[in-house]
Design a protein around this nucleic acid. Structure first.
Lengths: 217, 217, 217, 217
DNA sequence: AATGAATGAGGGTTCATTCAT
DNA sequence: CATGAATGAACCCTCATTCAT
């Protein structure tokens, strides 16, 4: 009997294991969104996942590792969306950038739940080097790619007085800043209003490349 | 001479009480900056303040109230700097806005310590309505005043195609986003580089009103 | 055979849970008897039970609930002894009453330890409505049943000048008063001397029904 | 100036001091009655007395001593009432005993507040030898004196089959038991009903000496 | 003599982690 | 693999006591 299983069972087991991990990570995300970082306990997480209390340490060794894996999961999830957004966009740098902006303020990424979790992690990042490292790895890559797109537009459009690196930094900062606005309900922006702020800025820089967004009420 | 003192004694006691509170709040800020929100304990705070364990509950009743008062302290401190910055600026709206930008990226406001604490609170805000309320009260005011300055510039400079409200939202989002960049060391910006990003943007919108910043290395 | 066990395992777990609760309640009783109500700590109780500190909150949620459950346990224990005493007594009301008196001054009920615990609870009862409610539920029932026995004796023995309700109240008050005497070692009564006081009283009321006790030294 | 004061000030100071002590003791009694023994704090007591927090240790050295002094105060207060009751009664032993019973269920002694405090102390007595000693000193004296009265009645009335010591023990036990009944609201007796139970008993023993009480509704 | 801010040991409680089942 | 009862370190908070004023 044993000779038939080594090929099949490990695979399904690995899948089952991966499913358990994802189940726990998603429960963690939900709990942090609901209760906040500091009030989220293992009991909350396992209850949310409808699993037993001991299972986290079975799959993640410790709470700290679960949290780190959760952050990596979020980062990885964002990355795959980001790459998909770029791949599906038309080849022009303008389309690529618009596609990224659309993603950042899409229903998939820009939910209160996810923003709450991201800022929960960023709030802890100041004192947890591992979180910072995880965030930084991904983010600097995005900025570089975006700077590349801006550079292309600058070159092709004779905008030599502009600085691609700065524009990319501006785009990123605007995005994160608008996310925080939305989380804190500071200026009562919704997703589309936030996106309009970005598009407005892009239009002001490259009036021939980016359209004026419809101004929401 | 002695007959004047009885009036001073109660006052000095009241003052001492306020000083104690401030001492504890500052210790709390330091601890959150060092250890993060979730790892900051009362023992840490009182040790940092070189006071005894029981003193927080004497002056703040509970940890939760101390944290809220700390947030209010930070918000009030920022507000007084903000008002001072406006008062000391030349009367023109451009000067006012430059003054605010200078403040936001000054050595006083834009330190790693303070950014860490602000984002620690914002990270918890998603699940603590009291924090959100405290933040929102102040912030919406700033945006309104800034929008007023932009409106003035727009009116006086014949820039009717621009939208003051959006520009103010952009300025705020940029500021918060750059702060997060700095905290996460995402693009390795320092205070001056971050400020340059903002000034670059302002120049791009109102080239006659805001100068191009010196591009740092 | 193995197919029958799956039914037993959950039951044994449930049983174990009930046993843990009883173990903790008994430890609580011992601690209150030894140290008194106000000096009994969770650490004392769990140490007495040779269990860990956290276990009380696992099984009782809080100290207050443990104490209430302890009171209920004591009340329930007394009740079952009381019912057993009545069931095992001969059918005559005299036998029933004698049986109750014997119980109240038996080695089972009338120990220094138990008296100390009962009075510890009664001492707190003045300010804890839940304790009072718990006590009252049981006690008024006993008085009523005893009044019934007295009524029977009165009716059958032509003692119409007596008042069953008052006699029952007298019996109860005497019992509780003698318990307090014993706890405070006020008149240095032992169990038998205390019982003799009661039997003496019963004899004085119903000389034909209750015997004069042997007067102890 | 100083030569006139040594005679007067110490006396008035001693009085003031004694008044402070009594003030604190009365506050203690009120607090124990309201909150119970275990929940009564020094802050409660000094607040109730409208005095400063530090004053207890000035006058009583410690909380424990204040509590002991409170018990002694209660015991002394009862004693003086008891002696007054005996002195004011007619010389016959029957009058003396009736006078004591009247006292024990008078508005002065038999209040919920005082019962709550007495039982609070008795509840702690099981584990505090000092309390027990304080209680026992007084109580055994009362029993002896009462036994003396019963002995007198027995001798004068040819009741030689009765046992004065037992009757005194019965009277005491009944009194304490009825007090507990009233505290726990076990049978909803009021002061007069409780007294009637005692008088009923006395009448049943000495029908020619003690009257049947009016049976309350 | 009186005050009440300050102290810190010790209280009840929480919760990440372990491990027998 | 999975469970959840059990553990105990560490948390927040209380409060008797001290002591500078």
């Amino acid at each position: 009997m044993a000779h038939a299983e080594p090929e099949i069972i490990p695979r399904s087991r690995a899948l089952a294991k991966e499913r358990r991990r994802e189940q726990l990570i998603k429960a963690t995300i939900n709990c942090i969104a609901k209760r906040g970082f500091s009030a989220t306990t293992m009991a909350d997480i396992t209850k949310e996942a409808k699993l037993s209390l001991g299972i986290v340490n079975l799959h993640f060794q410790s709470k700290e590792k679960l949290l780190l894996e959760t952050l990596k999961y979020l980062a990885g999830e964002y990355q795959s969306h980001w790459e998909k957004a770029l791949n599906e966009a038309a080849p022009s740098p303008v389309s690529k950038l618009v596609s990224v902006v659309n993603l950042d303020f899409s229903k998939t990424i820009c939910t209160r739940k996810k923003l709450a979790v991201w800022f929960a992690f960023w709030g802890e990042t100041g004192s947890r080097p591992m979180y910072m490292k995880t965030c930084a790895e991904y983010d600097s890559h995005y900025t570089k790619v975006e700077a590349g797109f801006f550079a292309e537009i600058i070159r092709d459009g004779n905008y030599q007085h502009l600085h691609a690196q700065t524009l990319a930094a501006t785009l990123d900062a605007l995005t994160y800043g608008l996310w925080l606005d939305m989380l804190l309900m500071r200026n009562d922006l919704d997703r589309n209003q936030a996106k309009a702020v970005i598009m407005d800025w892009l239009h002001s820089i490259f009036p021939n490349h980016f359209q004026i967004p419809d101004r929401p009420a």
